[in-house]
Design a protein around this nucleic acid. Structure first.
Lengths: 151, 151
DNA sequence: TATCAATGATTGATATATCAATTTTATATC
DNA sequence: GATATAAAATTGATATATCAATCATTGATA
């Protein structure tokens, strides 16, 4: 059976999420939270606006993710003294530990996902995915085709 | 910056969903619904249990997706005369049309996602993804490693 | 300076998911 | 045949998303 590429990708990530979930759950995290924490670890406190831009999600999604993360003690919401609308989200020590733990598990899962791949194949897959990802970002910025799909 | 493969996949599909959404919305569909409708088109009425197995999702997800699809007139829930617990989900004419429309758009998006890929590269990407997908299914069936990740 | 538009955070509605619990019906065992 | 267990569908709670609306503050301008 021939599946379109978007269907194949969808199913792959669906399975991936189901594999990751129990390991994240053991750390008290949801499936979308590591990306956010990771970014905080790498480069200090950020506004929610910045996080939303970085993660390419709606600001409201960030807001609710932070509700959960803050309740779990992984981050704290502070105030930005230069702009009283904005907040500054900071990672806690517990958050740093969770990220470190997760990175170990994540590496192990990556190895399993790429089981049977040679080094060269793995590199090539990454390159392909980066190209597809870049193409998708382009599509997002304009119409699907010069003449639209539905005439 | 080097990203783990699972992060790259996650972001790719996130972008994909955001690209697909407006086209699906124009048809009155959500981002998970085409897979379900497609399967119904290909092989007649199914129980919800069967659909859940096929889509690899929780039965409750199917149930709520059908609530929405039925309200939109894309499917009807009938009764299975041989088993009064089960139902039989059937696609409507409107559902068939939506699938046909969607397939045209989906093919166009696939082409754009693979923009810059040669035929051979595209085939190879599909093959790689199928291998990763199969690996993920395997992982789902057992522990991550002989000696677990957290020692 | 007073007003008005833009921005950052939030909340409500909905779709997609899981997990847990419940209901109804089938099947298996005693 | 009565009871116990399993299976199919559903509902409630929560996480991840979008979209739309709201609130407070900020910035630009008339």
């Amino acid at each position: 059976m021939e599946y379109p590429i978007h269907t194949l990708l969808y199913r792959t990530v669906h399975r991936q999420r189901n594999v990751l979930r129990p390991y994240l759950r053991a750390l008290g995290l949801g499936t979308g939270q590591p990306r956010l924490l990771m970014h905080l670890v790498q480069a200090g406190p950020f506004s929610q606006k910045h996080l939303a831009d970085h993660l390419e999600v709606d600001p409201s999604a960030v807001c609710r993710m932070l509700d959960s993360l803050e309740k779990g003690g992984f981050v704290v919401r502070g105030a930005d003294k230069t702009d009283r609308r904005a907040g500054l989200v900071e990672i806690t020590e517990k958050g740093r530990c969770a990220v470190a733990d997760w990175q170990r598990t994540g590496r192990a899962i990556d190895r399993r996902m790429l089981g049977g791949f040679t080094e060269a194949e793995a590199r090539q897959l990454v390159e392909y995915l980066e190209r597809v990802s870049a193409n998708l970002q382009q599509i997002g910025r304009g119409p699907l085709a010069e003449k639209e799909v539905a005439p």
